[in-house]
Simulated scan of single mutants.
Amino acid sequence: MEITGIGGLIVLALDIWAVISILGSGVSTGKKVLWVLLVVILPLLGFIIWLIFGPRSPRI
């Protein structure tokens, strides 16, 4: 049961990182909203899709 809780926290942390990265990216506001909705509505699947296809914030 503890593994499920830890797994949920990991997915939550990854989703927060994805949302921050999406909001910092250079894509249009409409695309940002769609990506954030995808990550929020489908946390694990949305994160994986974003990781493969999504916008990234510029590297410093």
Rank of each mutant, 00 (worst) to 15 (best):
M1D: 10
M1L: 13
M1A: 10
E2M: 13
T4Q: 14
G5F: 12
I6Y: 11
I6G: 03
I6A: 15
I6R: 14
G7P: 04
G7R: 11
G7S: 13
G8P: 05
G8H: 04
G8F: 06
L9M: 13
L9C: 10
L9Q: 11
L9W: 11
I10P: 05
I10F: 11
V11S: 12
V11R: 10
L12T: 11
L12S: 13
L12H: 09
A13W: 08
L14C: 14
L14T: 00
L14I: 05
L14Q: 07
L14G: 01
D15E: 14
I16Y: 12
I16K: 09
I16L: 15
I16W: 09
W17R: 12
W17I: 09
V19G: 05
S21Q: 15
I22Q: 00
L23F: 02
L23R: 12
L23I: 14
L23G: 07
L23H: 07
L23T: 02
G24P: 05
S25V: 01
S25W: 02
G26Y: 02
V27I: 15
V27E: 07
V27K: 09
T29P: 01
T29E: 10
T29N: 09
K31N: 11
K31T: 11
K31Y: 10
K32D: 08
V33T: 05
W35A: 04
V36N: 00
L37R: 08
L37N: 06
L38V: 09
L38D: 06
V39G: 05
V39A: 07
V39W: 06
V40C: 07
V40Q: 09
V40L: 12
V40F: 09
V40G: 07
V40R: 05
I41R: 05
I41D: 04
I41L: 15
L42T: 14
L42F: 15
L44Y: 08
L44H: 04
L44E: 07
L45V: 15
L45Y: 12
L45F: 14
L45N: 07
G46A: 06
G46V: 03
F47L: 06
I48D: 04
I48H: 01
I48P: 00
I48S: 00
I49D: 02
I49G: 02
I49M: 08
W50P: 02
W50R: 01
L51A: 11
L51C: 11
L51M: 15
L51G: 11
I52H: 04
I52E: 01
I52W: 02
F53R: 10
G54V: 01
G54L: 01
G54I: 03
R56A: 00
R56F: 01
S57Q: 14
P58D: 12
I60A: 12
I60V: 13
